[in-house]
């Protein structure tokens, strides 16, 4: 077994949490990937902890690095893709619509 199985209680992310987060992201992982990801992501999160050394009290967070704030446009219909072209890459389509598996039973 890998080093990741030692000291589980100190891990930042457990195998169980990896499975939970993968589920939120709609990903299936096999046993091997769960173990590998838990170990690798734990390492990465541990490294990311150095951010806690930075004093950020009162610092505004940045989500956009340049001076623009908002880009408004008029709410007008403009040239757009032809319906068939928009559907051309769909794995399944019918009568000009996307087809999905049954949602409501």
């Amino acid at each position: 077994m890998g080093a990741g199985d030692q000291g589980i209680e100190e891990m930042k992310i457990t195998k169980k949490e990896v499975v939970h987060v993968a589920n939120l992201a709609r990903l299936d992982l096999d046993e091997e990937s769960i173990g590998k990801f838990a170990e690798q992501i734990d390492n990465i999160l541990e490294y990311i902890d150095i951010l806690n050394r930075v004093e950020t009290e009162g610092v505004a967070p940045t989500s956009h690095a340049i001076f623009l704030t908002n880009a408004f446009r008029e709410d007008k219909v403009k040239e757009h893709l032809d319906r068939n072209k928009a559907l051309a890459n769909a794995p399944e389509k019918e009568d000009g619509n996307f087809v999905v598996p049954k949602v409501i039973g």
Binding site: V21, I41, I48, V59
Partner: peptide, 27 residues
């Protein structure tokens, strides 16, 4: 997949402030 899981984790309930908000402040 690894990055999607890291990102989903950092944005998930209870972790947002500790990770995403903190990183955005350091930014």
């Amino acid at each position: 997949k690894r990055r999607i899981i890291i990102g989903t984790y950092c944005l998930s309930a209870g972790y947002y402030d500790a990770y995403y908000r903190k990183a955005s402040q350091v930014r």
